[in-house]
Design a protein around this nucleic acid. Sequence first.
DNA 1: TGTACATCAGTGAACGCGCGTTCACTGATGTAC
DNA 2: TGTACATCAGTGAACGCGCGTTCACTGATGTAC
Lengths: 217, 217
Amino acid sequence: MVDTRDGIELLEKNQPRQERAKQTYEAILRAAAELLIEVGVERISTNMMAERAGVTVPALYRYFPNKYAVLYVLGARLMDRQNKVFQDWFLRYVEPENPHLLLNNITELLQQIYLETGGVTAGIQILQSLRAVAPLQDVRLKSHRMLAEQFYRTVAHLFDLPPDERIAARARVSIETGYSVVEMALEDDTVDRNAVLEEGAHMISLYWREVLPPVQR
Amino acid sequence: MVDTRDGIELLEKNQPRQERAKQTYEAILRAAAELLIEVGVERISTNMMAERAGVTVPALYRYFPNKYAVLYVLGARLMDRQNKVFQDWFLRYVEPENPHLLLNNITELLQQIYLETGGVTAGIQILQSLRAVAPLQDVRLKSHRMLAEQFYRTVAHLFDLPPDERIAARARVSIETGYSVVEMALEDDTVDRNAVLEEGAHMISLYWREVLPPVQR
DNA sequence: TGTACATCAGTGAACGCGCGTTCACTGATGTAC
DNA sequence: TGTACATCAGTGAACGCGCGTTCACTGATGTAC
């Protein structure tokens, strides 16, 4: 009688091939994002999405098996965008001759993730849905684990640290902390956004300086 | 046509007065927590809650105007429990003769919040719902703002710091960070819980040591 | 201590509506020869 | 270059079901005198 929540199909059915189909597909995603803002994840439905997108419900079912699959795509795309911000940041600031450069520019990273997320329609709502909706949770967790792993490997390499589970945990805590500060900046408008992002970045960099060799200058 | 999400009634209607009524009321809350685990906030309904609680739907409507009001009570109770853990921790470790005692015991605080939240039925699910469901967001935000304010005032007093907006932001970032680490420990079972809680606590204490006078010993 | 009355607690039945999902179908686009 | 056919894209209509909500009601508990 009760739904155990396992095995909810998230994969898309048919991929849109023709131009018209791609527009329909994107219109559905846009509609879903708008509705996430207007009615929330607890009330969004495939009927509403289709109506808002200007297509009939069976058109939606052509591409998505259910509403979770739509949210999944929104979530995966947001994670991709955030990961891309990370990659660009790494490319800019990973310099073997000046390893501390990375840790001195965490503020910029948080600011850019903040801007990127805030610039996506329903960015925060998507983030919150990824947390709250069980079948979607892995999207966020996998992404965070991956970033933590990458951050760990990069820092260990830059500073020649020996393999250490504790340092890996430190990387994961840093990622989660960074995101929580960004989410707070997006959620709570009584807060000084910039102060909060700078403080968060500063906390993380202090935390890493402790395990690193002193600055060489 | 579209629901703007403002003005959703969260206050309860009749308060249960007789013993039988109190049992009904609690049975509804218990049922809601169980269902939050089983079907999630996106699918929970007043019908399901009433059925699970063993009462008819109009009995639920006697005490709650809608499903949000039920979730609101679950959320408010969880926040109360977490706040209480904080208060007890303050009582134990605020000692004017030894101000650093507070910062040396943040691990214990995070562990206890972790245990308290994990010990409440659907603790994480409630936390995630408070984030994702717009009409409930203030419950969490108000609680966090209050704890940040209290932490700020206590530390400023213990260490004789002058009023400083930046230090207030630091307190808020610390609270948010602490909670995010606890949530991660509850959400991601691929992670070493204790390592993550200890690392989070350590990061926060480093962050505060920086703005404080050195240890006197 | 008994009883009449007021209040509190919960039920059964009903409503209209939007939900998810499926069907056979029409129309649009692509491609084989 | 034309046309027949295959595939892709989307529609209209229908279904049974659970949703939120309300009604007049019965029954249980409390209290005034």
